[in-house]
Amino acid sequence: MPCVAVVADDGGSTVVDAGQGPAHARLVQSAMAEAGLPAARRLVFTHHHWDHTWGACAWEVEEIIGQESGAALLAAEARRPWSDEYLREQVVADPRLGPSFRARARAVNDWADFAVRRPTRTFTDRLVLPTGIEVRHVGGRHAPDSTVVAVPDSGVLLLGDCFYPPPFHLREPGPAGEQIDTRQINALVAEGFDWYVDSHSPPWRPPAS
């Protein structure tokens, strides 16, 4: 499962990425309630990929924020007839989709309650939320809409998947590690945050200089 981050203040919680499906979103909601955190007020997508956005239909929020190029991609995703049968058909047509599409099938228990939700508020380059959270488009090879989310008061930069290789079915031959965007991650580390959080690893600190 990808990371879902929660930034809480007196005005409500900002949730960064929605979870990979409704069940994942509900796990996060239960954890927030158990921790006594305020209810979610907004969602921020780090990018449009399914494992970061498919939980959005289980959140009740005032707004969903995403970069404008990702909003267009999610609009196209929302028009697809998602179901177990459709997923199987797509894998037969392109076997390289197998890992992603089989994981999607496991993430959604009931397609009747599922919908791809698009951002209700978009930005181009940078957006500062009332809480001081900064949402910044960085792009990259993994997704054109990759966005990082800075929480200056906590010294935290949420990276999403921005420096990761492209998705498996779009990847060039060769080891995945060689396709990591080292220039991008080095530039982000140089910004000097105390903690960095990418979506599929524990939080980490930059190496000491």
Rank of each mutant, 00 (worst) to 15 (best):
S83P: 06
A76W: 01
G55V: 08
A208M: 14
D10V: 06
P2C: 13
P2M: 08
T46D: 01
A115P: 06
R26K: 03
I64L: 12
L43E: 08
Q20Y: 15
C57K: 10
V189N: 11
A5S: 13
R183E: 14
A31W: 13
D84Y: 09
H47S: 04
V15F: 11
G21F: 15
V116I: 14
H169R: 09
A71I: 12
V28S: 07
D17R: 07
A39R: 10
G36V: 08
S201N: 14
A35H: 15
E63Y: 04
D94W: 11
G55Y: 07
R183N: 05
V92E: 14
L127K: 04
A78L: 05
F123G: 09
I64K: 02
Q179W: 05
T53C: 13
E60V: 04
H24K: 03
V91C: 08
P99K: 01
P166I: 10
T120E: 05
T120G: 02
Q184W: 05
Q67M: 07
W50N: 06
R42P: 01
D181S: 04
A76T: 08
V149R: 01
F193H: 13
D113I: 02
V61K: 03
V135N: 00
H47D: 14
P167V: 15
S100Y: 10
E63P: 12
L73G: 05
D125W: 09
Q184L: 15
F123W: 07
D161T: 14
A71M: 08
W54K: 00
E34G: 08
H24G: 11
V135R: 03
L87I: 12
P81F: 10
V16P: 01
Y196K: 01
C162M: 03
D113N: 07
G155Y: 00
S199N: 09
